[in-house]
Design a protein around this nucleic acid. Structure first.
Length: 261
DNA sequence: AACACAATCAACCGCACGGAA
DNA sequence: TTTCCGTGCGGTTGATTGTGT
């Protein structure tokens, strides 16, 4: 419908940012704070579009970014969160302080995907590849890594509501299981699990995704389904039902805020 | 040393959403 | 109620770097 472009492309730089551009952006945000990205470039004297500035700041210049290699704990946490949330990189990033959605997305695509494939796990369904055609039951098995579990447990919103431990063997039931609700990552895990036995031979968490369909049954907001206490920041049980899937918008679930304070 | 290929990751693009007008 | 704007998200691209031959 002829949506206006986000910026006047003819007069904006593209490609890699220079040190000077970075400095300008950082200086401006330090002085004025984030927000109003559209007008920021002009105000900061940058020949960039607002989107580009925002991305640069969020993915690279923000002072609270961790950078550096992902730890094994972060790996595990990402895998678990991905099994629960799918490609909701921003939500996953919100649970990993100092990491950005872009960083996690790249890391997933370059490392974790391959790692899972190497283990015979479908990175999309988190089920053994051999089982891929056997049915569409959304059963996710992952080995509870104690360190990762501890890291997950540190997240303030982690208050398990319910975690169903089931037999590990993925059901080969051909029926399509539409009983999809979500449970928080299992935290009652054996302390002495061997790290190398991931993704098999351990209790699985059955993830039923129907609760993810915000407003449909369940009665819990997504925040609560992930363990946020009712009424706590991040819980939207008491707020309007207009939120779209996973409450990604309108600050319904500002995990970033929860994590970073 | 030179080249080809693979891996990585910063940045871009298009789209969808919420809110304001 | 509709339209437009600003923002944020997820997918994709392409430049750079690393590795093998």
């Amino acid at each position: 419908m002829g949506r206006s472009p986000c910026c006047e492309k003819a007069h904006t730089n593209k490609g890699a940012w220079t040190k000077e551009e970075d400095d300008r952006l950082v200086a401006y945000i330090r002085a004025h704070g984030e927000g109003c990205w559209r007008s920021l470039p002009k105000a900061a004297g940058l020949l960039r579009c607002g989107k580009s500035c925002r991305l640069r700041w969020i993915n690279y210049l923000r002072p609270d970014l961790k950078r550096g290699n992902f730890t094994a704990d972060e790996d595990d946490l990402i895998i678990k969160l991905h099994s629960l949330l799918g490609n909701k990189w921003s939500l996953i990033a919100a649970r990993l302080p100092g990491r950005t959605d872009n960083e996690i997305k790249n890391y997933w695509n370059t490392h974790i995907r391959r790692k899972l494939l190497g283990r015979g796990i479908d990175p999309v369904t988190h089920r053994p590849i051999a089982d891929a055609g056997a049915g569409a039951v959304t059963t996710i098995s992952f080995q509870p890594n104690p360190n990762a579990a501890a890291a997950a447990a540190q997240a303030p919103q982690h208050q398990p509501i319910k975690a169903e431990a089931t037999a590990v063997k993925a059901p080969r039931c051909p029926d399509l299981n539409l009983d999809l609700c979500i449970s928080p990552p299992c935290q009652q895990q054996e302390e002495d699990d061997e790290e190398d036995e991931e993704l098999d031979l351990k209790p699985a968490v059955v993830v039923k995704r129907e609760v993810l369909q915000a407003g449909h049954g369940g009665g819990l907001c997504f925040g609560c389904s992930l363990g946020i206490q009712k009424g706590a920041p991040g819980c939207s049980c008491s707020s309007s039902n207009r939120h779209h899937f996973l409450g990604l918008r309108a600050g319904m679930l500002d995990f970033r805020g929860l994590e970073m304070k």
